[in-house]
């Protein structure tokens, strides 16, 4: 058997699942990550501690383990858990620790004078964060966030551990039938490269622009 159009279509289907999983994870990770970042700069010690612990613990557990934990953990509720849900949940949890840490850095990088200026205008804590600090922090956060989205796309490949048929898994399935590993995994690799490389480059360009403006 040789690599056929049907195989290619199958890989493209896998690609769509990879993209879908990445988007779900990014949105979930973003929402959780924002909460983590805000808790990390909160004025309440307990919240800061909780967020700090979350970051340390999650960053010390491999993503495949998180995926299994979601898979079996959700399973104990008695439901039949779709692999997509378990994978998206775990990648979101994993991303929240990393994005939370990145965004905390950006929030704290907004100049202290801006916080003080907001205070002197008698804005309350919420207004200060939403109207003054966050808009500036977002600008600082964009390059690193895009950079991390590359990580999320690559991380979706770990969903193979629970058999979710995304791009890598579809490559593996085709290879089991055709046994053309170089050809198949080169194609799979190229698709990932096509997804990740523009994001990497954009991140690098924006980073350089930000640094040039800061200097």
């Amino acid at each position: 058997m040789t690599f056929s159009l049907a195989n290619l279509v199958y890989l493209l289907q896998g690609t769509l699942w990879t993209v879908a999983l990445a988007l779900l994870s990014f949105v979930g990770g973003g929402v959780l990550g924002l909460a983590v970042a805000l808790m990390r700069v909160s004025r309440f010690g307990a919240l800061r501690f909780a967020a700090g612990t979350w970051i340390q613990v999650i960053q010390g557990i491999p993503l495949p383990v998180l995926i299994f934990l979601s898979y079996f953990g959700l399973g104990v509720t008695g439901f039949d858990v779709p692999a997509l849900a378990a994978a998206a949940l775990s990648i979101a949890v994993n991303s929240s620790a990393f994005l939370g840490d990145i965004w905390r850095g950006c929030i704290q990088a907004v100049a202290k004078t801006q916080w003080e200026a907001a205070d002197s205008l008698a804005l309350n804590g919420f207004q200060r964060m939403v109207d003054v600090v966050l808009p500036q922090a977002i600008r600082l956060a964009i390059p690193a966030t895009i950079g991390f989205s590359v990580q999320i796309i690559k991380n979706t490949s770990y969903a193979v551990v629970i058999g979710f048929i995304e791009l890598t898994q579809s490559g593996k399935i085709i290879n089991n039938a055709l046994y053309e590993p170089f050809l198949i995994f080169t194609i799979v690799g190229l698709v990932y490269f096509a997804l990740c490389s523009p994001l990497s480059n954009a991140s690098r360009r924006l980073e350089a622009r930000l640094r040039a403006r800061g200097a």
Binding site: V150, K154, N155, S157, Y158, V160, T168, G171, K172, N175, Y179, E180, P181, F182, F185, T186, V188, G189, Y192, F193, C196, S197, S200
Partner: peptide, 19 residues
């Protein structure tokens, strides 16, 4: 940097074995 470790691993492990 723009491809997953797992794909790199499959490429090397299955690919090199195939030749």
């Amino acid at each position: 940097r723009n491809t997953p470790l797992l794909v790199q691993t499959f490429w090397l492990f299955f690919g090199l074995a195939s030749i």
